[in-house]
């Protein structure tokens, strides 16, 4: 009984600690430093960025997501060939190879919050559930960053 309580307490601590460290794990998938850009009132879309590591032996796939602050969460790629920005929805999702880290960052991939119901305010966090084909759903808090103060994407 006491052992169960201690174990329970330890588990609660274990699940609380990663939140503060911006570090989330489900199965073989670990997410680090989720952040989003602030948006203006009336702006209909915003971008979210996060680092995804697959420590498993098989590849996994970020397929979709959801958030209470937007109608949809889509996975997008950005290509800058020839000085032209081309953004595309990745309907088949984004593959994360075994042992690899894929960083969603400006100029490569992002999750797009489509149909924002409210502006993303700098200094707040937004709850987002990301869905992986194998690892399943993982709930993360995206920290909203101000657009003032330089290029966050170079982190």
């Amino acid at each position: 009984m006491i052992r169960t309580m201690i174990l329970g307490g330890a588990l609660a601590l274990a699940s609380a600690a990663p939140l503060a460290a911006h570090d989330y794990t489900v199965g073989a998938i670990a997410l680090d430093h989720p952040w989003a850009r602030e948006t203006a009132p009336g702006q209909k879309a915003g971008g979210g960025f996060v680092s995804i590591h697959n420590s498993g032996k098989t590849s996994d796939r970020l397929i979709s997501g959801s958030t209470p602050v937007a109608a949809e969460v889509q996975v997008h790629s950005v290509n800058m060939d020839g000085g032209i920005m081309r953004m595309r929805r990745m309907t088949d999702g984004l593959s994360i190879a075994p042992g690899e880290t894929v960083v969603l960052k400006p100029g490569s991939f992002h999750v797009m919050f489509v149909g924002l119901k409210q502006p993303l305010k700098a200094g707040t966090t937004i709850p987002v559930t990301l869905r992986f084909q194998k690892a399943g759903a993982i709930r993360v808090q995206f920290a909203v960053q101000s657009l003032i103060g330089g290029d966050h994407g170079s982190h």
Binding site: R37, K44, H76, V78, P106, H110, L147, I148, G153
Partner: peptide, 19 residues
Amino acid sequence: FGFTRCPDVCPTTLARMAH
């Protein structure tokens, strides 16, 4: 030139210009 629903290069570029 850009658009407000561009979550990537547009804010990056404008933030860079401000910087």
